[in-house]
Design a protein around this nucleic acid. Structure first.
Lengths: 203, 203
DNA sequence: CCACTTCCGGACCGCTTAGTATAGAAACTT
DNA sequence: AAGTTTCTATACTAAGCGGTCCGGAAGTGG
């Protein structure tokens, strides 16, 4: 549409990726506009605000992008063509691998991105909390599907599975940040999945 | 020793507790000196620096106090008079209850206290990382003890238990912060401990 | 070429940050 | 009374914060 006028000199997508990396590494609040502008190629405040609106608006874009790229390791959780058990196992294994990969920051932006916040940035915390809630719901739906399919029986123990898995998932962010490698987490996932096996209706 | 001179008018211990609550709620970096001074009873900068030295020094004291009080829920992990399985179970259950109790901030200061940090505060991150490493070691030692006692056999699966438990433990900080209640986490712990049961040497 | 649109560099805003310096008064011990 | 320490209160530093504004440059469509 509006194609006239001087074109932007920096690559908006590349700038967004750079901001993503910075936010992922440091979190929302400690990341300053100066750092952001610097990592985007020393753009000016005017350029920054024209392109992204505000620090918070940029962060929202960053989260969106994260969910659409790195966050896709969670996609199996909402893939109803997969067996529920496979969906959960793949989600955990792919998350473990992604969060420990050293070509980008370790851990999970959704878990770690705004865990330290002053009251005035509560909206940012809420944004990430909503994403985590979405994951929680994903595990619940997956287990519910397994019950509906007759793979699991609807017992009190079965009801604890979503919390068990999501707590482990979120815990991996801390472990990855502390330097644990994919192999360690992956092996723990194998053991964790034994819980599911022990609850399946015997053939 | 130095007992002469005008005594301090505020209660240093109470001030430390107030700072602990504030740091626990917001994390290290977003907590400003103004907030700290305010919650300590509107003490002056002079009094603050005379009593605590600096923001970072105060935080180190706060962490120490946290470990000695709330953090004592982890004590079973290093209590060699307990059966290893009981030590781990009690550690998890007591942590779940403590982290979800509403009479103080939710979650865990050691996990959440400095997860968002600018590079210049890396020492603070390192301080908490060391505490988490201590917990990791605790789980390792506990499992090793169970193997030594002949309760568990030394298999590859057994080796994954420490990571499994510590990841779950650290994940509870996120779940507690997001509003999960003790009951939910406690039930998940019951299910998680089934993993241990399934690995015990059959009687 | 011109009118128009958009972007850029840089100055600038008011505010907060952690931390220091100053003063004199007050409260304690010896 | 002498000496020591902390008190209150205020002023201050130097730097950084997120964000705004403007003049001019650079590009585009007619």
């Amino acid at each position: 549409m509006a194609r006239t006028g001087r074109p932007r000199e920096f690559d908006r997508d590349k700038a967004l990726d750079a901001a993503l990396t910075l936010f992922w590494t440091q979190g929302y609040e400690p990341t300053s506009l100066n750092q952001l502008k610097a990592c985007m190629g020393n753009i000016s405040p005017a350029s920054f605000y024209a392109a992204f609106g505000s620090k918070e608006a940029l962060f929202r874009e960053v989260v969106q992008r994260y969910v659409e790229t790195y966050g896709q390791v969670m996609a199996p959780l909402w893939d109803e063509t997969l067996e529920p058990r496979d969906a959960i196992e793949q989600t955990l294994r792919r998350s473990a691998r992604m969060q420990t990969t050293r070509s980008h920051p370790t851990g999970c932006l959704i878990v770690l991105g705004a865990s330290n916040c002053s009251p005035e940035n509560e909206p940012v915390q809420t944004l990430l909390a909503a994403q985590r809630e979405r994951s929680r719901k994903g595990f619940q739906d997956c287990v519910a599907r397994a019950v509906a399919d007759g793979e699991l029986t609807d017992t009190p123990v079965t009801k604890t599975l979503p919390t068990l898995f999501v707590t482990f998932l979120h815990g991996m962010a801390c472990e990855a940040r502390d330097g644990n490698r994919a192999k360690k987490l992956d092996e723990a996932i194998t053991t964790l999945m034994q819980v599911w096996n022990s609850l399946t209706v015997s053939p």
